[in-house]
């Protein structure tokens, strides 16, 4: 097993736009303030771009503690208020085991095993296409 050195991550985490989805890749050890900054950046970007989904790839994250867990849950809650769904993809098995033991099950967070699966989930569940809400007609 190769465990590359992952240094502390400070400042801004890049947010990529892929069509109707914002993609964020978290890697290494996140500074508390970086996680909070990301939360703020995502709210602004979702609101500005009107995307329908936020996909957070955490396959490179070695631990999720209650702080990061809370940030992820709050990202999902605020995205929901801005009409976007959030999916966290690629959680490592050791992280999942630890989170459950810690007592954090993160209800309200959509999950997927990989970013590809997460993308698929988000595209399936987009309730309406650009052009406004679909009207049910008899």
């Amino acid at each position: 097993m190769s465990d590359a050195y992952s240094g502390p991550v400070t400042g801004h985490v890049p947010v990529l736009r892929l069509g109707d989805v914002l993609l964020v890749t978290l890697q290494g050890d996140l500074h508390d303030s970086t996680a909070q900054q990301l939360q703020q950046d995502l709210a602004e970007t979702v609101s500005r771009t009107g995307v329908r989904g936020v996909l957070i790839d955490i396959s490179g994250v070695e631990i999720v503690d209650s702080f990061l867990g809370r940030v992820l849950a709050e990202i999902a809650a605020q995205a929901k208020l801005l009409a976007a769904r959030t999916v966290v993809a690629g959680m490592r098995p050791a992280v999942a085991i630890t989170l459950v033991e810690l007592g954090l099950t993160l209800p309200g967070l959509g999950t997927a095993l990989s970013t590809e699966a997460g993308m698929e989930l988000l595209s399936q569940q987009a309730p309406s296409r650009p052009g406004g809400p679909r009207q049910e007609s008899p």
Binding site: D65, A94, I97, T98, E101
Partner: peptide
Amino acid sequence: LVDQTKLVT
């Protein structure tokens, strides 16, 4: 790995 993750958390 799992125990490391628990300890670090």
